[in-house]
C-alpha cells in the first residue's frame, strides 16, 4: 500500500463552506428570533383552546393581569393576593393611566387581558374579574393558548 505523505507545516483546511453554513445558521436564527415583548410568565401556563384566535387588530392600551396556579395575581411583575388592598390601588392607578392614554371617550373600551393558569381556581379568577368591574373595566379577554389539532 502506498501512503501519500501530506506533511505540511500548517494544515490549511478550506474554511469557506463552514463559514457559509455558519452564516446561514445565523441568518436563520436571526429571522426566527422575535424581540416582540411577550408578557408571558413562566409561572402561568395557559389553558388551551381550539377557538383561541389572536386578535385581528392590536389592542389599545390593554391591562394585563396574570394569575398563577395558586390564585395569586401578577400585575406589572409584582405578585399580589386577589384581596390585597395593594392590588386594589394598583388597579385604580392602571385605570387612571389607561384613561389618560385613550382620552375621555375610550375609557370603556380599555380591555383587561386575563392570563390565568390552567389550574387556577375559577372562583379566584372570577373574583379578579369582579374586582376589575368594580373599578370600571368592562371588556375582558380571557387568554388561552391556541390548540393545534393533530400536530
Amino acid at each position: 500500500m502506498r501512503l501519500q505523505k501530506q506533511k505540511k507545516e500548517d494544515a490549511e483546511g478550506d474554511m469557506t463552506p463552514m463559514i457559509d453554513i455558519v452564516f446561514q445558521l445565523i441568518a436563520f436564527f436571526m429571522v426566527l428570533v422575535n424581540f416582540t415583548k411577550v408578557d408571558a410568565d413562566d409561572r402561568v401556563k395557559l389553558p388551551s383552546s381550539a377557538l383561541a384566535k389572536p386578535p385581528e387588530q392590536k389592542l389599545k392600551f390593554p391591562v394585563t393581569l396574570q394569575m398563577t396556579a395558586d390564585g395569586m395575581v401578577i400585575l406589572g411583575g409584582d405578585l399580589m393576593d386577589v384581596e390585597s388592598p395593594d392590588l386594589d390601588n394598583r388597579l385604580i392607578r392602571e385605570r387612571r393611566a389607561a384613561g389618560e392614554k385613550v382620552g375621555p371617550g375610550g375609557i370603556d373600551e380599555v380591555p383587561v387581558i386575563i392570563r390565568a393558569h390552567e389550574l387556577a381556581p375559577t372562583g379566584k379568577v372570577q373574583k379578579l374579574i369582579t374586582l376589575c368591574q368594580s373599578k370600571g373595566f368592562q371588556r375582558f379577554r380571557l387568554r388561552a393558548k391556541e390548540e393545534t389539532k393533530g400536530g
Partner: peptide, 21 residues
C-alpha cells in the same frame, strides 16, 4: 447568542367577554 435567545412563542388567542359592572 441567537440559538440561546431563540424561543418558540406559542400562539395565544383571546375570548372576548363584555361584562359591564
Amino acid at each position: 447568542f441567537f440559538i440561546m435567545t431563540f424561543n418558540i412563542v406559542e400562539v395565544e388567542g383571546d375570548f372576548n367577554i363584555l361584562m359591564p359592572g
